[in-house]
Design a protein around this nucleic acid. Sequence first.
DNA 1: TTTTAGAATTAGAATGATTCTAATTGCATT
DNA 2: AATGCAATTAGAATCATTCTAATTCTAAAA
Lengths: 151, 151
Amino acid sequence: MNASATRAPAKPTGLDCRLAVLGSDVRLTPHRREVFDVLASSTDHPTAYDILDRVKSRSPHISLATVYNCLEHLTTAGLIKQVQLERGQSRYCANLHEHVHFHCETCGKVSDAHPAADFDPAKFWNLPKGTKVTRMDIAIHGTCEACTAKH
Amino acid sequence: MNASATRAPAKPTGLDCRLAVLGSDVRLTPHRREVFDVLASSTDHPTAYDILDRVKSRSPHISLATVYNCLEHLTTAGLIKQVQLERGQSRYCANLHEHVHFHCETCGKVSDAHPAADFDPAKFWNLPKGTKVTRMDIAIHGTCEACTAKH
DNA sequence: TTTTAGAATTAGAATGATTCTAATTGCATT
DNA sequence: AATGCAATTAGAATCATTCTAATTCTAAAA
């Protein structure tokens, strides 16, 4: 799957440098870096197409296939998260803090909400003993502040 | 969208009977009833194809399009819920109680988990004042009891 | 340096799930 | 019995994504 699996680990020089975050192991090629940067500077949970549009301003020739490829590698490496709020397009987000997604059904915007410090979600559901939790996807749908105000 | 919008409400006789649950308003045609019954007697969160297979034992000529159509009407009426656990096929469920979905990443099974009585999810996330919550989708991914035991 | 092998990138084809379309059938009031 | 809308159907179309095969790039080996 990655270089280190099929040959001796390369010395990280040039493109082969890796982001040593969270045990990730991705070659940070220019495109992957751009996709990551776009996401890191976005708070609106863009779709693959949104990301393509934004990256194109720097790399006009990047293809949709490459965007998907970059997103897959960055997701696998744990640098970004894929978010499935409804059927159809996936959205992506670079906020790695524990958070939930609020989706406004009126204006369509998606924002992050962070849990209170003492929130321990697992204990609120009666999961059978022995169940292991690896991740939770929590999506809250409703009407955001601004849309509620406009009533 | 439904009959009552375009003509005077019909007296509920024959196929035109409606399920007076939760303010819903669906014509309960034989196919819709079968789709609903299949779902009501399933705990495994079947996909549209799964439902097609099961309904076919009673109605061999039912088409996939009709299954989708029935699912849409039942969902709109609030009689069933559409569940999006991962990208790809949607799943459906007739459990209308407040619950979350546990998805075992090892065996793929999906089960319901019910929250503790004192669970008030909204207060755990710092949503801006004025935000209205209409529904929450909570999916927990991990390893189920049985798969953990097999280790 | 040149070579070479594996990755990355690309355009376009293929896939999978769902939605749409147009034609047909069925039901319930006129 | 006639009429009109809703339900059903098969198949086409669509959408998002994944796959394929060809090309280009990169970094270690020679």
